[in-house]
């Protein structure tokens, strides 16, 4: 690449968050048109999020100098940090289970990707935030953490906040290549 080459543009690699939200909204609408049943749509969104998360985690780790997480609380912090990095909105971490293996990500009075969304009544089973669940699951799976995620509260459906409940299932051991760790 020449000296006055393409670097400046690529360095300035920000994209408008509104664009992301609008694109995602249009995408959901299109999937809904294709699959019709909200349950099927949820499944697709989860898959889509998973695929994004699997790749996103590499980018995240490459951009941040992150030491190994020693317990699940640190993991929660990283997830929180990743949300700030990618969506510009930082969720609160809270509602820890006494055993320390379950926590919530909470956005008060907002949905990080649902700014322009209104829900029709016949689609109340559609989980608009499912893509976030998929992304977290996919991302954590790449770092050998298996989690189960449910949407506890959904701001778009009239709740006070958007809350994702994340439960630690197990550490994945098998995925490590021989000689690592």
């Amino acid at each position: 690449m020449s000296a006055k080459g393409k670097a400046p543009l690529l360095d300035n690699n920000k994209v408008n968050a509104d664009l992301i939200k609008l694109t995602y909204g249009a995408l959901v609408a299109q999937i809904l048109k294709d699959y019709e049943k909200p349950e099927d749509v949820n499944k697709q969104l989860e898959k889509l999020g998973y695929n994004i998360g699997v790749r996103l985690v590499e980018d995240f780790i490459a951009h941040h100098n992150i030491p190994r997480c020693l317990d699940f609380r640190q993991t929660a912090e990283r997830v929180q940090q990743a949300f700030r990095f990618y969506l510009g909105f930082q969720p609160a971490v809270g509602n820890w289970a006494p055993t320390g293996n379950e926590f919530s990500l909470i956005w008060d009075n907002t949905n990080p990707i649902g700014d322009f969304v209104e829900f029709p009544d016949n689609l109340r089973t559609l989980q608009y935030s499912r893509v976030l669940c998929g992304a977290i699951r996919g991302g954590l799976e790449m770092v050998q953490i298996d989690v189960a995620i449910t949407i506890a509260k959904e701001f778009l459906l009239g709740d006070q906040a958007t809350e994702l409940r994340i439960r630690f299932n197990k550490r994945l051991e098998d995925a490590l290549p021989i000689g690592e760790d």
């Binding site: 920000k14 994209v15 968050a17 992301i20 980018d59 909105f89």
Partner: peptide, 8 residues
Amino acid sequence: ISGPSYLY
């Protein structure tokens, strides 16, 4: 607000 374009 903006996020990195990689996500996009």
